[in-house]
Design a protein around this nucleic acid. Structure first.
Length: 826
RNA sequence: GCCCGGAUGGCGGAAUCGGUAGACGCGGAGGCCUCAAAAGCCUUUGCCGGCAACGGCGUGGGGGUUCGAGUCCCCCUCCGGGCACCA
């Protein structure tokens, strides 16, 4: 593309200058008011792709905007540098994950600098740095001490061929290992957990006031999944028909429907399955349990469609339990749709009021008893809404909420059960059987059991002399020198923990380390954290809307409660912005899909400014964007716009002086209206319309320049400077260059304060009033902005078009909304 | 399956509150410049009818509320994201 200026040279010049003058480095004692702007630190996947460009363009815009507004803006950068891809690459190529990762960090960092995004690089944090590992481990030990970290058995994906645990991602849709092709099994292993569930109530209750997208808050609420209900016992029926000592504890959110229980279901993993299954049924039950052991949770909760498929997903145990509400025996089934990890792993099934139970009952020909009268004309199966209770003994005639309360009362009075709040949220499984992660700093001693490595011996680092076998097994467990150690307490022989931490652990507190990455007395400096936190603007992909944000919210609270931080605001991110994804051919752009569009070619072709402008203007930042054949032309168009700005501002004729004419005032009005619009649009993240307003201002300037009288020197200058200031955070290089040429020897563009507008000047002198007849636009009348209702109505009824359409009849009604609209109802 | 979004001209999108649908841009058409082209500049561009004035239709589909609905309510279709070991 032929350009009006050398974009590459201009951009490199300014990038060099921003790096050397340290303008965007901030100290913790900076006197300006503090502002913390943060993009989620990325996993280093190599040269940037358009998703990165989009993210850092938004972030950089805000950093520069807030700086111009007078804040000292903390704008740090780091890398989420542990993770599976580096380990896979190591197995494939034999390169150590550190080398692989650091090469990719250098590549990504290069792309980001080339984009013109500015950061305080002195504060760079990388998860795999020994210093970060040290403090990561220190926090783990603190959690262990506080009882927030614990060990328990958990089910994992196990590949018998590779002899290792697999990530869900490594299990193909047919249930086989992506590496060996072996059928993946479920195995129970001892794992480390963080007790996030003890914060479930707080994490839910404090969501409301956050300035986050409503949909993200909803997702978090659903994820935590608080539900109120009851837990109670179902006694297993003995051979003589009476209750035995064995009871199945069930959780239900609908205790009011208990009279409609026609069967009960155990999760296949439930410990009582073995005991209550009769010999005749054992074959079928075992077969089901085997099948379930190789299916995922998503498969298990899928498909309420009755019929053949569903019929294979359950099995009768041969036993019966007694419904305590009516003492009726009901059969006990095992079925995959009941999960051991939720509630008690057992349910009472009420097909009339639960969809999954309904489908199951259909497939197994189990009876269905309604306990809520569905509304008239209801034709579906299960009815879960409110209504009058029927077939429900002492609850008959009540509505659902009162019946619920009554049922719980009754259970408690009878001593069979209790009111119970359940969460869908499970504790956070943090251990990974992998090499490229932060080692869990624990040893196992025969005498002293689980012993944390003392803080002064941290970090526990993985050895470098390891071999990556194509089995996928973590080399840590095979490294004799690493595994065998001594107990810090008794000095006797001990075995090291060879599991590493989930990378979500690393990313749950990096934003706190950024506040003072030099701090040596602990993971986080409470004073620096008090200064900068909470993050004022957090920007990142919607794919992190649940886990990362939830874990970070938990972490900050846990750090405060374990004394590592002072009693500060417990929410880490007061404002979170979820940027949309870039899609190609209908799916998310990602390295694994091989549909990445590298920005480097665009840096050469049109420059970083044009690419930034494209990402800002193409659509709402929160919305997904489809990269198509047309996209290149749009990006070129952004380059052409910058060319026109360059030419029109640097090659403008001198202009006239003296008094202002009408066109001059109109030009000034447009400039000030644009300041007003763009400022509020940046504040509310409407970058695409902010760009459109800048373009309108420029179009207005070109029109103004063609006026017969010619442009006024000062008026044109004011408009030109306004345009540069408004574009400064968006396209920083070219605007800085034009500014320097227009204002040689003066302070640079980005050091200037953000422009303000004259509130008197932005007021329009007249507006177009729309006159409707029966809601259709029939006339437009120019009126004063402060026109009175009576006057507006008089003008509208006087309109020849309105008179014609009314045909002499009096209007039935006139709706007046001055100054914009009058609607005459005929 | 469950949870969360989205759908507006040929295309990306605009329309803080229920009040002119289509800002801004891409593409198209016509013109200027040029020996010619590229680039650049100017005009025009929702669809249908009409010389025009103007009229009709129009925000995925169906229904509703309202003087008035892209916007609010109900139902449906299609597309995308997340689902706990990818990050």
């Amino acid at each position: 593309m032929a350009r009006a200026y050398d974009a590459v040279a201009v951009e490199l010049k300014w990038q060099e200058r921003w790096q050397t003058d340290g303008f965007y480095q901030v100290d913790n004692d900076d006197p300006r008011p503090a502002h913390y702007s943060l993009c989620m630190y990325p996993y280093p996947s190599g040269f940037a792709h358009q998703g990165h460009v989009r993210n850092y363009t938004f972030g950089d815009l805000l950093v520069r905007f807030r700086t111009m507004q007078g804040y000292s803006v903390l704008s740090p950068f780091g890398f989420d540098s542990f993770g599976l891809p580096a380990e896979n690459a190591a197995i494939k190529t034999g390169t150590h994950p550190r080398l692989f990762t650091e090469e990719r960090i250098a590549e990504l960092k290069g792309s980001i600098i080339r984009l013109g995004a500015v950061y305080d690089w002195r504060r760079e944090v990388r998860s795999h740095d020994p210093e970060y590992i040290r403090w990561n481990q220190a926090i783990f030990l603190r959690f262990l001490e506080a009882g927030l970290a614990y060990r328990a058995r958990a089910t994992v994906n196990w590949c018998p061929g590779c002899q290792t645990v697999l990530a869900n991602e490594q299990v193909l849709s047919d249930g086989r290992c992506e590496r060996s092709g072996d059928l993946v099994e479920k195995r129970d292993l001892e794992q480390w957990f963080f007790r996030i569930t003890s914060y479930a109530d707080e994490l839910l209750a404090t969501l409301d006031p956050l300035e986050w997208p409503e949909k993200v808050k909803t997702m978090q609420r659903n994820w935590i999944g608080r539900s109120e209900g009851a837990e109670f016992d179902l006694a297993v029926q003995g051979a003589d028909g009476t209750a035995t000592d064995v009871a199945i504890r069930v959780f239900t959110t609908r205790p009011d429907t208990s009279f409609g229980m026609t069967y009960a279901v155990l999760a296949p993993e439930h410990p009582l399955v073995e005991q209550i299954t009769t010999d005749e049924q054992r074959g079928a039950v075992d077969e089901l349990r085997h099948r379930v052991s190789s299916s995922t949770e998503i498969e298990r909760t899928r498909a309420a469609e009755a019929g053949e498929e569903l019929a294979k997903r359950g099995a009768f145990t041969g036993s019966y339990v007694l419904n305590p509400f009516n003492d009726e025996p009901v059969p006990v089934y095992v079925a995959d749709y009941v999960l051991m990890g939720y509630g008690t792993g057992a349910i009472m099934a009420v097909p009339a009021e639960d969809e999954r139970d309904w489908a199951f009952a259909q497939a197994y020909e189990l009876p269905i008893v309604r306990t809520v009268e569905p509304p008239e004309g209801f034709e579906g199966g299960a009815y879960s809404g409110d209504g009058e209770k029927i077939n429900s003994g002492f609850m008959n005639g009540m509505d659902v909420p009162s019946a619920k309360a009554k049922a719980i009362d009754w259970l408690e009075k009878e001593g069979i059960g209790t009111k119970k709040v359940n969460f869908r949220l499970r504790d956070w499984l943090v251990s990974r059987q992998r090499f490229w992660g932060c080692p869990i700093p624990v040893v196992y001693c025969e005498r002293d059991g689980i012993v944390g490595v003392p803080e002064d011996r941290l970090p526990v680092l993985a050895p470098d002399d390891v071999e990556f076998l194509p089995s996928g097994q973590s080399p840590l467990a095979l490294h004799e020198g690493f595994v065998h150690t001594t107990c810090p307490l008794c000095g006797g022989p001990a075995r090291r923990e060879t599991d590493t931490m989930d990378t979500f652990v690393d990313s749950s507190w990096y934003f706190l380390r950024f506040c003072d990455p030099w701090f040596e007395d602990g993971p986080v400096n409470p004073v620096a954290v008090e200064r900068w936190m909470p993050v004022d603007e957090y920007i990142g992909g919607i794919e992190h809307a649940i886990l990362h944000l939830l874990y970070s919210r938990f972490y900050l609270r846990a750090l405060i409660d374990t004394g590592l931080l002072t009693e500060i605001e417990r929410e880490p991110f007061s404002h979170y912005f979820a940027q949309g994804m870039i899609r190609m051919d209908g799916s998310k752009m990602s390295k694994s899909k091989g549909n990445l569009i590298a920005p480097s070619a665009y840096f050469e072709r049109v420059g970083a400014d044009a690419l930034r402008l494209f990402h800002l203007s193409v659509g709402p930042p929160e919305q997904d964007f489809d990269w198509t054949d047309q996209t290149d032309e749009v990006i070129d168009g952004c380059g052409k716009f910058l060319d026109r700005v360059w030419v029109s501002l640097l090659e403008a004729p001198a202009g006239r002086r003296g008094p202002l004419n009408e066109a001059d005032t109109a030009m000034r009005r447009l400039a000030h209206q644009t300041i007003k619009a763009v400022t509020s649009e940046i504040e509310r993240w409407s970058f695409n319309t902010a760009v459109a307003h800048c373009r309108e201002l420029h179009n207005g300037m070109l029109r103004y320049g063609r006026e017969e009288a010619g442009p006024h020197e000062e008026v044109f200058g004011e408009a030109a400077d306004t345009l540069l200031l408004l574009l400064a955070p968006m396209t920083p290089h070219v605007t800085a260059e034009i500014w320097e040429r227009r204002h040689p020897g003066e302070p640079g563009l980005h050091a200037r304060p953000w422009p303000s507008f004259d509130p008197e000047l932005v007021k329009e002198r007249s507006v177009i009033m729309v006159v409707q007849v029966n809601g259709k636009v029939r006339d437009r009348i120019e009126v004063a902005p402060d026109i009175a209702s009576e006057e507006a109505e008089r003008l509208a009824l006087g309109s020849p078009r309105v008179i014609e359409l009314l045909g002499g009849a009096a209007p039935r009604r006139v709706i007046v909304r001055p100054p914009g609209l009058v609607n005459v109802v005929a």
